[in-house]
Computed example of a mutant assay.
Amino acid sequence: MLEITDLRAGYGGTEVLRGLTLSVGKGEIVAVLGSNGVGKTTLNKVLSGVQPARSGAIRFNGQDIFGASAKTVVSAGLIHVPEGRKIFPNLTILENLELGGYCRPKSARRTNLDKVFSIFPRLKERTTQLAGTMSGGEQQMLAIGRGLMGEPKLLILDEPSLGLSPLLVEEMFTLIRRLSDDGLPIMLVEQNVVQSLELASRAYILENGTVTISGDAAKLKDDPELRRAYLGL
């Protein structure tokens, strides 16, 4: 579904992504792990079409999307749920969801809303509530629901567990498993190493803008090199 080859990007004279290569296949949950400052956010911005890359290749679902606009990327079905949720606090839950489907036909809106409400019944109960008055966990549900309104063929989830209580983190990872079981490929960009590796089929560990370790997630859990690169042990 997604193939990234030798990707380089940065800001001004600073190179952040330094020849990064990774892929996500159909039906997979692929974890992209790393601490702050290793290039995860830059990678997501480049894939979403809001930050230009300097070189490399990006193919999504058989199409070359290197240098494509954000609208083109979204229209192709590559949907990014950003870190920190980035909901519109002064709009209602329903209005936030409807904005998620701006690239899709209006005729599909009701079907997509029904799908989101079946996954998040709490959102259906409060469609007229202002999004900014929701709890952090509810806002994360709304952000993912808004992403689903875009009819994703692949969903990028950027730090979905950030700022949530342990109980809500468990709930969030259960939801991600459910979405995957329904056939949606997911690129999970996280700092939560343990639970991400338990959930994912494969994983990439980023360090200094490139992949330092990759492979089967179950095997990586016990890899001493992972403990060194990520935990400094």
Rank of each mutant, 00 (worst) to 15 (best):
G13I: 06
T72A: 11
K71V: 14
G37N: 08
P224A: 12
A218F: 08
P52E: 10
R104M: 06
G163N: 04
T174I: 09
L22K: 09
R110W: 08
R146P: 08
A31D: 01
N192F: 08
P166M: 07
I93Y: 08
R54S: 13
R146A: 09
R202V: 00
K115R: 14
R227E: 07
I205P: 08
I156Q: 00
V116Y: 11
S196I: 04
V74D: 07
E3K: 14
L20P: 06
L142N: 09
E138A: 05
E3D: 15
I79E: 04
T210C: 05
V193M: 08
V74P: 03
G100Q: 07
D158E: 01
Q140V: 05
T111L: 09
A203P: 08
V73T: 05
F66Q: 07
E28G: 03
G150S: 10
T41M: 02
G77I: 04
K26H: 06
V211P: 11
A229G: 04
L157D: 03
A57L: 08
M134H: 01
R110L: 12
R104F: 01
D223F: 11
R59V: 06
K221W: 03
L184F: 02
L154K: 05
A108V: 06
S165A: 15
G56I: 13
L17M: 14
V50N: 04
G136Y: 03
K40C: 13
P52L: 10
G27D: 10
V193W: 03
R18C: 13
L91G: 05
L91T: 04
R59N: 02
K106Q: 07
G209K: 13
S161E: 03
K221G: 01
D223C: 07
P105I: 04
S35N: 15
G37K: 09
K115F: 12
I156H: 02
R54A: 08
I87W: 01
G132Y: 09
E198C: 01
G10Y: 00
N61A: 13
R122L: 10
L175R: 01
T128W: 11
L154Y: 10
V38H: 07
A76Q: 09
I79G: 06
A9R: 14
L164N: 04
M141F: 04
V74G: 00
V46H: 05
P105N: 11
Q129T: 11
G56V: 13
L148E: 01
P52H: 10
V169D: 10
N44D: 09
R8G: 05
L2S: 03
T128N: 14
G77R: 13
S35M: 08
G215R: 01
K86T: 12
D223H: 13
A217Y: 00
E207F: 02
R85C: 05
L94P: 11
A70T: 14
E138I: 11
C103P: 11
R109H: 12
Q195W: 03
T128Y: 11
L231V: 15
Q139M: 02
R122S: 14
V16I: 14
L113I: 13
G101V: 02
A76S: 15
G27H: 10
V73C: 12
L7P: 12
P89T: 00
F88H: 02
L175H: 00
M141P: 10
E190N: 00
I87L: 08
V46Y: 04
E125R: 13
S35W: 08
Q63V: 10
T111Q: 15
G10K: 07
T42A: 13
G101H: 09
R202W: 00
E83V: 06
G67V: 12
T111V: 10
